[in-house]
Design a protein around this nucleic acid. Sequence first.
DNA 1: TCTTGAACCTCTAGCCACTAGAGATCCTAC
DNA 2: GTAGGATCTCTAGTGGCTAGAGGTTCAAGA
Lengths: 141, 141
Amino acid sequence: MDLSIGELSRRAEVKIPTIRYYEQIGLLPETGRTEGKQRRYGRRAVARLAFIRHARELGFEVDAIRTLLSLQDDPDQSCARADEIAKARLVEVEKRIASLKALRRELRKMVEECACGRVGECRVIETLADRTHAHGKLAAS
Amino acid sequence: MDLSIGELSRRAEVKIPTIRYYEQIGLLPETGRTEGKQRRYGRRAVARLAFIRHARELGFEVDAIRTLLSLQDDPDQSCARADEIAKARLVEVEKRIASLKALRRELRKMVEECACGRVGECRVIETLADRTHAHGKLAAS
DNA sequence: TCTTGAACCTCTAGCCACTAGAGATCCTAC
DNA sequence: GTAGGATCTCTAGTGGCTAGAGGTTCAAGA
């Protein structure tokens, strides 16, 4: 096989600097090099990198992915740990959805009530300025 | 009034280093100091900071908040810009919810199908390894 | 008035997961 | 042989804070 980093990037759909970054943080093993020190990859690298990409898209943290990768490398292990990681992520996602929905309610109210006249009467500004407003951690992103 | 930064922090429910950070990036104006160079705030600062906190909780970026604050300072302006910012944020939130729901579906499937035996048969790992999987940007966080 | 000690100060570095750019080197097709 | 695209390393920047070091100031009590 012997793919260049650019080839690998295209096949796994992960940007080149990201690949180098993954190597740096130990998510990808160091790979062979040409005499001129350019990286060359085998077929397995594509699968491993795509695995990582998919896991990142699902929002798993790098540390979790490290664990998932090490599980993958050893197919006779119990998959309880993998299940646990996935479940924890699911719980996180559910919490985030709930908080974004609360957010959406509030934003909708703001936008709907805005008569779009002067700022002095604007519900958007008023709502933000309303200090009595309940506030738990609503949401990031 | 003459609040110390600690008092302001308690009243607006924003941490002290965050207040200093907001001053640094120009979200809060520089304030008066004692002879010993400690910050002192007036009553308006509490409202302004609470405004910022609420906006952050709603996920507005600092730049957007800068605009919202400048609108608030001039109540005779049209509030169209504020409305626009809020609507844009609402759209973002809706997109994020949709993508998190897609995420949740996939995570649920993974978790449900995991028979929790050996990793070699684990659906969690298999799903992640499946390169043929469709992938748009699913989600961050 | 003096003394504690809690609160405050500035400055730098770290967090996460990348991303961007500079400036140099390599590889390959013609 | 050479042109130019691909690759290399290294540093710094992103956003929105947060943490810590090491020093100074303030206010209440003795």
